[in-house]
Write a protein that binds this DNA or RNA. Structure first.
Length: 494
RNA sequence: GGCCCCAUGGUCAAGCGGCUAAGACGGCGCCCUCUCAAGGCGCAAUCACGAGUUCGAUUCUCGUUGGGGUCACCA
């Protein structure tokens, strides 16, 4: 059987990693078996429609590398793929159920429904009282003729229980009295989400329904619909939720449901923070799923590899926490393994901000690759190139490199004439500086430490002495070293 | 509150009756080293609790506790 899965988001304008992971698993499930992955936009709620939200969905999927075979933008044989464009399609199905006595018109007003809730015993949650379930033919006709607004409700079983099977959670049983006479068609003529969902999944030939575990307890309602129509129930795969971790000002950590409150769990928020789409996909693939067999213990996956390795048996039941630290590590792994062209392309915008010459791109790639986990860290790492001021001279007092202000003055005075005429080449500079240390019969660090600090003006730099000199260029390096030497001498004498 | 689901280190997690309870992130230590990384080596840290079943339970059953979800003319 050809597997057909679908991603069915609502255009609310925000796509967080939880939704994205659902889409990913739907995609992987289909592709693992050469199946078809469909995008369907569920916009039956006109009031909540957000302008431009659909484009965000397309853009997210495209950027993430999850491509749909059928959808509003790419077409397909089961369209239209936007529910609002399918509006006329649903009501006949509902009316068919009315005709068969499996559903009924309900004329109850909003006010009556509200008062039902208010008059309920304290604390109790009360559903619809099925007031219109057994209206007489006369009453129904009268209401219809007078134009009273109505909804169509499905008759749900009044007793017993419903059981269904889920590939992740096993058998789920729910008492039928938990099931309300659900609304199929709203007053505005639009179908409810539940109804449209079932009609669309069936008419689009969806074989595997994959969604978050928040649907676990409402699935019997969907099944009641499939049964009423005599349709096959799809295979269900419910996914554990992803939780977010937030830390407040006091340092208290709370774990809670992923939402906008966590701010940066939006896909494009993460992209803006410097995370790579491939790394995000790789990371969330492993949140709630564990590879097995030849892929066991593997952490880094391309999309192709995910498709091969993905297996529903590896999906876990318990919710997981989105861990930025691990994402960050993984992003760094992607950067380390990047080819030069990609690295430079990603880094270029940041290099341009610092007016870095293309001559240094190769050097920077080598220096930066092991040192950044996100490209957005580059300006911070290279700040010393643009910023140089009256830094603290105590930096020259460094026990580990056997340096002091005095040895630094000595080293810098000896280094200046050498650097002035040295070929400005990383290896050559390194050789010359080491030679200087050898001539003076001191450890390399006794000359390297002061030169690097004098030129950079900070203790921590990416790369070493020669690399700092290369990035600054001869002119700027000499200027800084001389300035620093003067200040050093002044501080010793004064 | 009713109903449903879940429960292995701080986090992601392997395990599917018998193991010194994998691996990864993070943490810590050592090595390397002109700083910071990277890399190498190592350490600490987990079966929520209580009853059963069994020769034997992390694993099976029940209960307790804790967490999550869900109860709309929202999706």
């Amino acid at each position: 059987m050809l597997i057909r899965t679908r991603f069915a988001p609502s255009p609310t304008g925000f796509m967080h990693v939880g939704n994205l992971r659902t889409a990913l698993y739907e995609y992987l499930t289909a592709k693992h078996d050469n199946g078809v992955f469909i995008l369907r936009i569920e916009d039956t709620d006109q009031e909540r429609y957000v302008e431009g939200a659909t484009d965000i969905i397309y853009k997210t999927l495209e950027t993430a590398g999850i491509s749909h075979d059928e959808g509003p933008d790419v077409g397909g044989d089961y369209g239209p793929y936007i529910q609002s464009e399918r509006k006329g399609l649903y009501k006949p199905y509902a009316e068919q159920l009315v005709k068969e006595g499996k559903a009924y018109y309900c004329f109850c007003s909003k006010e009556r429904l509200d008062s039902l809730k208010q008059n309920a015993p304290e604390g109790a949650v009360v559903g619809y009282d099925r007031h219109c379930r057994d209206l007489s033919e006369d009453e129904i006709r009268k209401n219809l003729e007078s134009g009273t607004p109505y909804v169509i409700r499905q008759k749900m079983p009044l007793s017993g229980e419903s059981t269904y099977h889920d590939l992740v959670y096993g058998d789920i049983t729910i008492p039928n009295d938990e099931l309300d006479d659900q609304i199929l068609i709203k007053t505005d003529g639009f179908p409810t989400y539940n109804f449209a969902n079932v009609i669309d999944d069936h008419t689009m030939g969806i074989t595997h329904v994959i969604r978050g575990s928040e649907y676990l307890s409402s699935t019997p309602k969907y099944n009641a619909l499939y049964e009423a129509f005599g349709w096959d129930i799809p295979t269900y795969i419910h996914l554990p939720l992803i939780n977010g971790k937030s830390v407040d000002d006091e340092g208290n950590v709370t774990i809670s449901k992923l939402s906008k409150r966590h701010g940066s769990t939006g896909f494009f928020d993460l992209i803006e923070e410097g995370f790579l789409p491939e790394a995000i996909i790789n990371y969330i693939a492993l949140l709630g799923w564990c590879p097995a067999g030849e892929y066991e213990n593997r952490e880094i996956f391309t999309m192709e590899e995910l498709i091969k390795a993905f297996d529903i048996n590896g999906i876990s039941k318990s919710p997981s926490v989105f861990d930025y630290d691990k994402l960050e590590w993984m992003n760094g792994e992607y950067i380390k393994n990047m080819d030069s062209e990609s690295f430079i392309r990603n880094a270029k915008p940041f290099f341009d901000e610092l007016d870095i010459s293309a001559d240094n791109y190769g050097l920077l790639e080598e220096i930066l690759k092991p040192r950044i986990t996100r490209f957005t860290e580059i300006p911070g790492k290279l700040a010393f190139i643009k910023e140089f001021g009256e830094f603290d001279l105590e930096l020259f007092e460094h026990k580990k490199s056997k340096s002091s202000k005095e040895t630094s003055v000595d080293a810098l005075e000896a280094a200046i004439p050498i650097l002035e005429s040295a070929p400005w080449d990383r290896d050559k500079l390194n050789d010359l500086i080491k030679q200087l240390a050898a001539d003076k019969e001191v450890k390399n660090s006794v000359v390297m430490w002061p030169i690097r600090i004098a030129a950079a003006g900070v203790a921590v730099t990416p790369g070493g002495c020669a690399e700092v000199l290369m990035l600054l260029g001869r002119e700027e390096s000499m200027k800084r070293i001389r300035t620093t030497l003067d200040r050093l001498k002044g501080s010793i004498n004064g």
